[in-house]
Design a protein around this nucleic acid. Structure first.
Lengths: 153, 153
DNA sequence: GCTCTACTATTGAGTACGCAAGCAACTGTA
DNA sequence: TACAGTTGCTTGCGTACTCAATAGTAGAGC
């Protein structure tokens, strides 16, 4: 059996731009997530998705959304949203509301406590986000980044 | 107790660019990850991190890295890498190698089977990535995206 | 030589998802 | 009215992580 040949790697010398973008997306997401998640957990006992859910509901008309729409918005599966809302309901931040027009659907309804929790957490969390991103990218770059990423959804 | 006041939301009308970039990062990552992960799992029984680990090792000198360096590269914790490599070792794709100079460290060493698995999976996975990204962004935009994301790590 | 601190790696416990399967309610077709 | 297909939601189960605690090793200061 011959020893390992000395060629370093069978991989292309310069990977396609798409692959670089993908690996940087993975790394960037991990880095940002780890930092912001730890901060949010420490200061307000919320996960990132908890916060995103509260914030999405707050922006929705009447502070309510069908669970399935919330799932799509947060890029979760239906079961993912069930589990996420379990926690928020247990904490009294969100409650269930029926839909008289369609008995299959139940709304996720932001409570007053939820709105308050969001107000409390919002300022600090937004601050963390801005610190992280604005330290590294200027305003134009952030716009560009947001616009390019949006096209992946 | 008064009825809910009619103001729609207490949130700023236009969120700062950093916040938009962050939420689009979350959404873009979810969308891309779900798609590519399902594909890779289906075609080669690998998770995204399995693939990234193999590919990172293949690009490293001698096909080996200290576990702690691999962790940093993949944006995982030390324990995360232990668990990830457990699976790859069990599958015979990676093996342990001692470091005579420092008894604390053990290398993760790509095996020939691992190199082969990577070759098998590489083409299809790269294809999926390119399809996903190049359908939505052109070459310049991909470069820009990669560069901007890289600054978050 | 010793001691103290820092680093590498593993393990146990807990968590946040996803997928597959299932139930109930709606919709369209005949 | 009856039946098939779709949609909204939940549940059981598996998995890929994390953090906290632990053990062994290295290196620096004395």
């Amino acid at each position: 059996m011959s020893r390992q040949v000395l060629t370093d790697t069978p991989v292309l010398e310069t990977p396609p731009a798409a692959v670089r973008a993908w690996t940087e997306l993975l790394r960037g997401h991990s880095a940002a997530t780890r930092l912001l998640s730890a901060e949010l957990q420490r200061t307000h006992c919320l996960t990132i998705n908890d916060f995103e859910a509260l914030s999405t509901l707050a922006a929705a008309e009447g502070g309510r959304m069908r669970r399935v729409d919330l799932a799509r918005r947060l890029m979760l599966t239906a079961s993912g949203v069930t589990r996420l809302l379990e926690g928020l309901e247990a904490a009294g931040l969100v409650e269930r509301a029926e839909c008289p027009a369609d008995l299959r659907v139940t709304y996720a309804q932001l409570t007053e406590a939820g709105r308050e929790k969001l107000r409390d957490a919002s300022c600090g969390h937004t601050g963390s986000i801005r610190t992280l991103f604005e330290e590294r990218l200027d305003e134009d770059e952030l716009d560009t980044l947001a616009e390019l990423l949006a096209r992946l959804g």
